[in-house]
């Protein structure tokens, strides 16, 4: 199985690369958005950077990526990568992939950015049954505000704001937390996603 990470050029991909790599799995990074969804079995949108910058990097290949996802390409979006699966963001200009209708909004709370380990609430997805993750690492100032509430399969709460931790549309999964930074259980979730979409 070939996994492609779309690299916006912003941050650390080492832990993610290592978490994705396995005996049955070849991982490549791709900086060209028009090639990111081509000739691959899984697309991963990683989680570091700002929305405007990432949307601008994605723009030349946005339609191709969206078409591939619509045609069934499994996709995992992490943190900013999850936010790119929505329509647009208050953080910056540009358009997302619009797989999930809704906007990304500023997180309200006593302490923002939210940095640290937060509990995963009301988990209701086969992936979270296969790889339970009671608490996960977050580093974000923005959260997704989906129109389609049933697409949300788990939640977290920061201060008085409850926001989507995990969304799914068929074989596209978005997580607001960083599974690759959530120790062993987080890595297990990534492995479980690859098993799910590989079977």
């Amino acid at each position: 199985m070939k996994v492609t990470i779309f690299d916006y050029g912003a941050g650390n991909l080492h832990s993610l690369l290592k978490a994705l790599a396995g005996d049955d799995c070849r991982v490549e990074t791709q900086t060209d958005p028009s090639l990111a969804a081509k000739d691959t079995d899984v697309l991963v949108l990683p989680g570091v950077g700002a929305f405007g910058h990432a949307a601008a990097r994605l723009a030349p290949g946005r339609d191709a990526v969206r078409a591939a996802i619509d045609a069934g390409l499994p996709c995992l979006g992490i943190c900013l990568g999850m936010q790119l699966l929505f329509d647009a963001s208050d953080e910056g200009p540009g358009i997302g992939l619009g797989v999930f209708p809704g906007r990304v909004r500023k997180l309200e709370g006593e302490r923002v950015p939210q940095i640290g380990w937060n509990t995963i609430e009301n988990a209701l997805d086969p992936l979270l049954d296969a790889a339970p993750l009671p608490i996960a690492y977050y580093a974000n100032s923005y959260v997704c505000d989906p129109i389609d509430i049933p697409s949300v399969r788990a939640w977290s709460t920061h201060g008085s704001t409850t926001f989507p931790a995990f969304v799914r549309a068929e074989r596209t999964v978005g997580v607001q937390f960083h599974p690759e930074k959530s120790s062993r259980s987080g890595v297990e979730l990534i492995r479980a996603f690859l098993r799910e979409v590989g079977s």
């Binding site: 912003a10 950077g49 700002a50 910058h53 580093a139 100032s141």
Partner: peptide, 8 residues
């Protein structure tokens, strides 16, 4: 912060 986000 502008390039990489305030969280880092």
């Amino acid at each position: 912060a502008a390039r990489f986000g305030a969280q880092c």
